[in-house]
């Protein structure tokens, strides 16, 4: 049936964005057991960097008014560079907002607030630099790809399909890397037990930095892609995904990479399944679903149950 297929397509395409966002949270969570609230701001940064990379000029309201790079890079190159820039920025966030607390073995709650502070600073600096107006990446950034694909009557914008592909690839690469490679296993060892990992000769600091760099890279890539899909809605662009991303993260299971994808798709589908006349209740449905799952399965869909030690 047409509509059923369309709902599936809608749910998956919206869910992919949530999943990409939650994957960034997951990477840091799996190593440190804390949430990096600056992630949304990095997502925004990635979108703005991509915009600059493809040769976009700053609007008239920012401190950088009228400024543009002297060159216009192809979209994929600009996107990768934006990802790299966000990786660096996230390393900075780690150094300022996380490392001093980690040294002291502070409570996880503190990281929430320091990273929130870092996010507030970053978002407001972006507003000062770029102004509050929206920006859009050029519609022809994807070259000859048709803007809309039709699948047995269900319509999807090709950029959404691209987002879904990127999401699947990132998840596959991450899973394989975590399970198979030396670095990935070291990362997992640190997340299991930092002390033992150190005894095994693993540099846990390096592993934490690696997770932040990867998470930042992901934030940058997804920010640029989502910016291409729906335009950059101002400096608060990334923050609005923060709440859904958090929900998806917990729904899928904290620290679980496939869980983030599954969670994203579940929330996306739940939202898409809300009939048009009730579209105002969409967000409540997503969170009611999350709430129900939490009560039935507190560790999330793919998370491991917590161990209570006696």
């Amino acid at each position: 049936m047409d509509t059923l297929l369309q709902i599936l397509v809608n749910g998956i395409s919206v869910g992919a964005v949530y999943a990409l966002f939650a994957l960034g949270y997951t990477l840091v969570f799996s190593v440190l057991g804390v949430i990096n609230f600056a992630h949304g701001a990095l997502f925004t940064l990635g979108a703005y960097l991509t915009y600059l990379g493809v040769g976009g000029a700053v609007g008239s309201n920012g401190a950088l008014a009228g400024w543009a790079l002297p060159l216009a890079l192809p979209f994929p190159v600009a996107l990768l560079l934006a990802g790299a820039g966000c990786a660096l920025a996230n390393l900075l966030v780690e150094a300022i907002a996380f490392r001093p607390l980690r040294r002291r073995g502070a409570e996880p709650l503190l990281y929430l607030i320091t990273s929130l502070g870092a996010g507030v600073v970053l978002v407001n600096l972006l507003q000062i630099a770029f102004g509050a107006e929206g920006y859009a990446l050029p519609a022809d950034a994807l070259g000859d790809l048709p803007p809309v694909l039709s699948l047995a009557g269900a319509r999807i914008r090709s950029v959404q399909l691209l987002l879904l592909l990127v999401c699947a690839v990132v998840m596959a690469v991450l899973t394989v890397w975590l399970e198979r490679s030396r670095g990935g296993r070291a990362l997992q060892a640190v997340s299991e037990d930092a002390v033992t990992a150190r005894l095994l000769g693993i540099d846990s600091d390096a592993m934490v930095r690696l997770s932040f760099a990867l998470s930042g890279l992901l934030a940058g890539l997804s920010g640029g892609l989502v910016g291409l899909s729906v335009s950059i809605a101002g400096p608060y662009f990334g923050i609005v995904y923060g709440l859904k991303g958090l929900g998806v993260l917990v729904l899928g299971g904290l620290g679980s990479v496939p869980g983030a994808l599954l969670g994203g798709l579940v929330v996306g589908l739940a939202e898409a399944a809300v009939p048009g006349d009730l579209s105002g209740l969409k967000d409540a449905v997503a969170f009611a679903f999350l709430f129900a799952i939490l009560l039935l399965r507190p560790q999330g869909l793919l998370g491991r149950p917590p161990i209570s030690k006696v």
């Binding site: 917990v250 105002g280 409540a284 009611a288 939490l294």
Partner: peptide
Amino acid sequence: LRGIYLAIATIALNEILRVLLLN
């Protein structure tokens, strides 16, 4: 629920309340 799960569950409740009031 414990820890962050409780935090998220309460945030979910806030969101549900907000959307219901809005509608």
